[in-house]
Simulated assay, not measured.
Amino acid sequence: MNRVPSAHGPSSSSDTPAAGEAAARPRITLDPESLISAREALGPFGNLARQEPIEWAAEEPLPTDLADFYRYVGPEWLEIDTVGLPLLFFPLDRLWDEQAGYRWNHRTGALLVDWNDDWTVVAKQGADPFIHEAATGRILMAPGEDGWEDRMDEPEPVFRDVTEMARALAAVGTAWARFDDPFTPDWHLTDEVVAAVVAGLEGVLGSHERAAGLARKLGYLAAR
């Protein structure tokens, strides 16, 4: 797409995708049970409310799986405490604004060349985004520890869909909240905290290898 966005996001233009182009986007569907599980997992961390696609502020249609996620899970402003900065979810009416700094430049509104039109930031930890890929429904993360703009590689898939992401991040927050003092006297995470986070993730992901790898990406560097 060649739209020139304003500082508040892409503006209306005659270069918007044709109806046939929008219709060509695959319809990714989410299992009803996974939506229920995601809602139950996120419930302790903040308000959930039914949100409809009309609240999406972009010109292109909201991917069908994200529409279902906001309709049936409905995170508003959610903050999940974890090691380092908290994990953040946004309400649908602010989701488009949260693309600033990824899809377009915060100050100038210019589109950023390394952003794929198929991507939408659906959650963040600091400036590190969790990216929904419309063609597959998967959630991507950028590898490395230097933040989005300084990364060396393209984002890689870490979750099968947005409901798995929600359940996994909630599991991290639940494990973290169990410990009043998660640090050793020399300010390392205790083995118990790391083990609890990995176990919580394994319960969602079904794989110890996946759980430990994701824990390391989320700052639990001693996870094995």
Rank of each mutant, 00 (worst) to 15 (best):
S6M: 10
G20M: 03
A22S: 08
A22H: 02
E40V: 12
N47D: 11
R50C: 08
Q51A: 11
Q51W: 02
E55A: 15
E59A: 14
P61R: 10
P63V: 13
P63R: 05
V73T: 00
I80R: 03
D81G: 06
T82M: 14
V83S: 04
Q99D: 03
Q99T: 13
G101S: 04
N105D: 13
T108G: 12
L111I: 15
V113G: 07
V113Y: 02
N116I: 10
W119R: 07
V122Y: 02
G126N: 06
G137W: 03
R138M: 13
R138N: 10
I139D: 04
M141I: 08
A142D: 05
P143Y: 10
W148S: 06
P155H: 03
P157R: 11
R160I: 11
V162D: 08
M165V: 04
R167I: 11
A168L: 03
G173D: 13
R178F: 08
D186F: 08
H188S: 08
V194E: 01
A195M: 05
V198S: 08
G200C: 06
L205F: 01
L205H: 00
L205V: 02
S207W: 04
H208E: 12
H208F: 03
H208P: 02
A212P: 01
A212W: 01
A215E: 03
R216T: 05
Y220W: 10
